[in-house]
Amino acid sequence: MIRRRLRPLRPDPRPGGLLTLVLLGAWMVLLVAAPGALADVFTPESDSGSPNAEGIDTLYKIVFALGIVVFLGVEIALAYTLIKYRMKRRSPAPAQIRGNTPLEIGWTAAAAGLLVIIATVMFVMLGDIKNPVSSAPGGLPLGSAVTQFASTDQPAPPSGKSLEIEVNGQQYLWRYDYPGEERLFSYHDLVVPFDTTVTLKITSQDVVHSWWIPDLGGKMDAMPGHENETWFRIPSPADGKERSFLGECAELCGEGHADHYTRVRALPPAQYEAWAARQAEAIREAQEQLAESRRAREAAEPTSTEIGGGEGS
C-alpha cells in the first residue's frame, strides 16, 4: 500500500548531499588560483605589528575557528543525513517523530553557550584593542599630555602621552593636523614616528567618510559634526627603514570614492622630527609667498583692494 502510494516519486539515481564536497572543492580551486598573499585569505590584515591590529587579528581567528567548527558540524550533518536517509527501493515508512524536548532544550543551550563564550572572549580582548598603549621605548619624546574626549570614550594611554593627530575627511582627500607650537599639517600622507602611540581625532567637513588603513587596525567613520577616535603604534622594523601603509576610504562618499586614498608613512623618530621641521618650514614659506603675492597685487592695482575685500576676508 505504501509502496504504491510512493511510486510516482522514484528514488533519484544521483542523490544530492554533495554540498560540502562542492564547497570544499570550490575553496581548493580558489586557494590554488588566488594570487597575492595567501596569508590574507582567511584573516584580516595586520602586517604593521600595531597592537590593536594584532588584537583584532587574534580575536578574529578565535571566532573564525569556532565558526568553522559550527560550519563543518552543520554541513557534515546535512550531507550525511541527505545521503543516508535518501529514499531507496526498500525504504520503510519513516518513524513519525514530532520532537524531543530534552534534545531541543539541549541544542538551544549549546547554541547560547557558544555565543556566551564568544561574547566573553570579545570583552576580555576588547581593552587591548580599544585602549591605546603607551609609546614604546625609543618612540618620539612627547611633551604635553593628551586631552580626553567624551564622544567615543577612548581613554588616554597609561603614560598620558600620545601624538595626537586631527584627521579631516574631505571629498576626496584627507587632511592631517599635527600637534605642536608651529603650524604643521599634511594632505594624503600621514607621517608618524615609530614606536610612538598615535591617537586620531577623526571628523569630516562634508559627507561621511571612513578612515581606514587595513594594516593599522579598525576603521572609524569620519562624520561631520562628530569626533571619532582610534589609535595605533607602529613598531620599529629591524632595519630601521621607512614603512608605509596604504588605505582607502571605506564609506561611499561620492563620485571620487574609489580614488579616496590615504597613506601612513612611519619613520624613525629622528627622521620624523626632521620631516616635521621641513614641512613646517615649507608651510611657513608658502604662507609668506602667498602674503607676498597679495601685497604685490595690491600694490600694482590699488583699487582691487576694495573689490577683492570681500574675497580676502
Binding site: E45, I56, G67, M125, L126, G218, K219, T230
Partner: peptide, 16 residues
C-alpha cells in the same frame, strides 16, 4: 559570518 561581524572590534576591520 554574521556572528563574526557582531563581534564589534572585528567589525571595525571588516565593516564596509
Amino acid at each position: 559570518s554574521g556572528v563574526i561581524l557582531a563581534v564589534f572590534p572585528v567589525d571595525w576591520q571588516l565593516h564596509d
